[in-house]
Nucleic acid binder design. Structure first.
Lengths: 350, 350
DNA sequence: CATGGCCTCTGAAACGATCAACTAAATCGT
DNA sequence: ACGATTTAGTTGATCGTTTCAGAGGCCATG
């Protein structure tokens, strides 16, 4: 079993310096066309696969991949429609630059709890070892230790919340929530349940501690509270942001003594789960009880869900541009939102 | 602006050898608890972010990430439900091992065409530079140069088709297609259009050259042909595997002089697009014209699409295990398929 | 008391490229 | 035909770790 050839070996065989072989791959313009041909021919013939990526990025300080941080487990990236849309937009931009996308599950971090050193190390383990040029943080709490690690490494991070990363792409979570709240109030809803996802993935619980909420969720809850004014409002923490959580939360809502006339969820993913469960329980969304969400994921239109639209894909593209396009210098972008009223919200039934 | 500390600097400051600092991070058992504490404390205090990933992987020959190859552009990974399900399964397994997932778009490769060296280099560019321990190839043609590059690098590759990667997870594409063909025949269909995706992304075309098909598509087409027996069969190449391609292909089918009574698509993604377009054109799938697909993605059930079920998520999990679990030694796994008859196929209308 | 074995920790050699500075030859304008 | 610029390629240092063989110190054993 002969060993794999190195760049040096190719150089020796070709009778040129290692730098020339490197240039044959990385800077064609620094080499005569003939010499380059000869070198690449020889390399192919020797079964040389090209410069070793680790060595190359050690020296050049570039890896060609951009990291995507998840505070949830990795499957979330592919199961949540908001997430896939965001990644889709990002991918559009990345595709043009030859960048690869590194998916980094970072493990959930509870703000209220303190971590031993080893717990914290294992929380950032995957990210510490990851080779990346820059990173995107979506749904990562600003206090997550992984952000500190990346900052120490000098990796540029852009985020979708205030405080994650030095630059960010935002939507007006609070303002749009106020608008949704007003919509519900104008329909006559006086008892409303607000279902929110949270960092701690437990059973649905009423009136959670605010610190367990992701910043965006807190803003949305606050906005709803303002928009709903004097309405009677119950906040329910549903656990992680999945349809399943939504389903369980719906049951929690139905179990309360004074059933609300409307449910507002902090994400469409939750709302879709809620819709599902209500139907299962024989209730007609829109007629018997109103339901609303946030984000306007593709499925929302099909389900007739009233929701706050945000340009998710464009958000992904913008994040990508912030990292990849040097001429893109804005450090804060706010994208527009719009209330989309569909059939899942209606006036309070008599 | 002071420079970022290196492991060596931390070692010097702590009065220990670099090896000990390395061990503090990577092999706690090689160090007394006290020494480790002292080193990590100092590191934190100096703002040391932990061992540099590139240097670490250069020396240790391990990167902690597993590559996922796409022959399409990156957005495909998040748009195609088959793909997200596969990745979801993979992610389940990867999550347990602390591995990250590196998404590698590799650019489409037409088998029939020959490539200049520079064209070929740019085709594999992203992958050549990517740091990974192993890779998964799904929907990558066995002849794609990227597979050669990875083989030269000695990266283990597992695939979902014969010939991609030294190990693979398969389904019986041909056999299940025979079954679907027989189903359609038993319903009385004598004129059938087969819509298939292909590597070249052009306008829908009739009776394509077989070499433009991905292996799985060719097997499915062949199987359908066998199962349908004497039926009159037209093969239509729809371009890339998207709902949009399916929609366009539906129009091509409807434009033919002798309209078929059934359409079989080589994937649910295409079939869903076809269903959509037929409805748009005022036809009722199942009643006016039968439609069937392959894969049984989640949306298929909602759409009432008759299809060949395959355990996509399990496929992803198995691929992951092949790479990550050393005790998993099978080199070829075939997963079961099952014909799922729903409402989109029915007896030929009178 | 000598022997062996374990536990900590160290030293020096890789790992495989790229970079910045430089030289020699070729090209240019006048 | 001469210095100035460009082109083509080289040299040697460097990127920041991990690894492996082994050095001491310490304890238990015979």
């Amino acid at each position: 079993m002969n060993t794999r050839p190195t760049l040096k070996a190719v150089a020796a065989a070709a009778g040129v310096s290692p730098a020339s072989v490197s240039n044959a791959y990385n800077r064609p313009e620094q080499l005569s066309a003939g010499a380059r041909e000869r070198i690449l021919d020889l390399a192919a013939q020797m079964g040389y696969a090209g410069p070793n990526p680790s060595a190359s990025s050690l020296r050049s300080r570039r890896t060609g991949s951009i990291g995507m941080l998840f505070a949830q487990d990795l499957t979330y990236a592919f199961d949540d429609p908001y997430c896939t849309a965001l990644l889709g937009g990002l991918a559009e931009v990345a595709a043009g630059t030859g960048s690869n996308l590194l998916l980094l599950p970072v493990g959930p971090h509870e703000v209220s709890r303190s971590y031993s050193r080893d717990e914290e190390l294992s929380l950032v383990q995957g990210t510490r070892r990851a080779a990346l040029d820059s990173a995107i943080a979506d749904g990562v709490h600003p206090g997550h230790p992984v952000l500190r690690v990346l900052a120490e490494r000098g990796v540029p991070v852009v985020g979708t919340a205030e405080g994650t990363g030095e630059r960010c792409v935002l939507v007006d979570d609070r303002g749009s929530a106020v608008e949704l709240g007003e919509h519900l109030r104008s329909l006559g809803h006086q008892r409303v349940a607000v279902v929110t996802d949270s960092m701690d993935d437990g059973e649905p619980a009423v009136a959670p501690d605010d610190t367990h909420l992701f910043p965006y969720a807190r803003l949305r809850v606050d906005g709803l509270r303002e928009g709903l004014g004097t309405a009677d409002l119950t906040v329910i923490s549903a656990g992680s942001n999945t349809q399943e959580s939504g389903r369980r939360a719906a049951d929690t809502v139905l179990a309360t003594t004074t059933r609300p006339t409307a449910i507002a969820a902090t994400s469409d993913t939750l709302a879709l789960g809620i819709l599902d469960q209500l139907r299962e329980r024989g209730l007609r969304p829109g007629a018997d009880i109103s339901v609303a969400g946030f984000d306007d994921v593709p499925q929302a239109a099909l389900a007739g869900l009233t929701t706050v639209h945000q340009p998710i894909r464009e958000k992904g593209r913008t994040l990508g541009r912030m990292l990849l396009d040097p001429s893109f210098t804005q450090t804060r972008v706010t994208l527009p939102t719009e209330l989309v009223v569909r059939t899942s919200t209606a006036p309070t039934p008599k």
